[in-house]
Amino acid sequence: MEHELRFGQECFKVTTEGKGGKLRATIGDETYEVDLENISENCLSLLIDGVAYTAYVAREDNKRFVQIGEEQYLFEEPEEEAFGAIGGAAAQLAETGIGPPMPGKVVKLLVKEGDRVEVGQGLVIVEAMKMEHEIKSTIEATVKKVNFSAGDLVNLGDVIIELEPAAMS
């Protein structure tokens, strides 16, 4: 298994191989012998080259939270994995839905159905917590459908705009 993890501005490739809790992990030039015991969903007991570590872990979206000892680390899986890898799991994403970050109101739609959008192009402005937020496209795509109009109230999970990634065609 190969994992790409971002830590701040740095990017690390971690390769793990083996089974039954006996693993070999490689980060760059360094190789570690790992003995893994899953204590719970959020707790891993690790023996790394014979030294014991307890790692508390959680994941949400592309974020991976890890605490070992007093240090907490936030890693992010790069987006390219989700959108760019054609033929991979990401290719199964036939469409991409644009929703609000929190309950709010649609202030202005910046695109209409059929528009081609570039990476970073504004799609819709939503007002939440008394502040306006512009939602931008993270991909090159075509606007497939617009489900809400200006003035509409939107909730978490609502899809305001559906995009069809350009890379799919």
Binding site: F12, Y32, V34, V57
Partner: peptide
Amino acid sequence: RTDSDRRKFLSQALVAASLIPTGTV
């Protein structure tokens, strides 16, 4: 200090991050 100053257990944390059970998602 900033986030990236925290490096004491970085390698171990990277290993742990790669091994997070999928059941948490």
